[in-house]
Design a binder for these strands. Structure first.
Lengths: 69, 69
DNA sequence: ACAATTTGCAATATTTATCTTACATTTAGC
DNA sequence: GCTAAATGTAAGATAAATATTGCAAATTGT
């Protein structure tokens, strides 16, 4: 389950993975793996990402249990 | 920085730490340390907690940068 | 098509979240 | 005040998040 919202928010902010990674002080691979849904990131990292991208946790990391399927 | 919101949501649901821990499949200590702000939990754990307590990530784990001080 | 940039991905190493066990402290009922 | 339940906390072990390096694949602009 890829994290499309994160990728879109990043692109809205005109950043590539490397730039976002530097801003939140992780490696590019970490960002890549979060976007591809293969990492289970730390809350603090999620918050840092949200702050940089001007979003909230719900915006980027929350999914309603009743997402229209 | 304690997580008061989490503790309050837990009490609203009439649960003690042990019960919440069992529901989200971690140990009581993990819940205790998250509430006391000493743990940096995993996103998936945060989401599990939210689901059990009927809250969202923003409800329990987000703080506006401009919280009135 | 070519070159440059961006992204995906794999193996190994390091750090950190979480577990296990156990005990101390606080809180609530009686 | 006593007792039981709830919570705080600590040390060592384990699992998982993240780093590091390097290269391959995909994307973009020319």
């Amino acid at each position: 389950m890829k994290n499309k919202k994160l990728k879109m928010a990043r692109l809205e902010n005109d950043m590539n993975q490397a730039q976002l990674a530097e801003r939140v002080d992780v490696t590019r691979q970490t960002i890549s793996l979060i976007e591809s849904g293969r990492y289970n990131p730390t809350l603090n990292l999620c918050i840092s990402i949200c702050r940089v991208l001007g979003k909230t946790l719900d915006d980027l990391f929350w999914e309603e249990d009743n997402e229209e399927s």
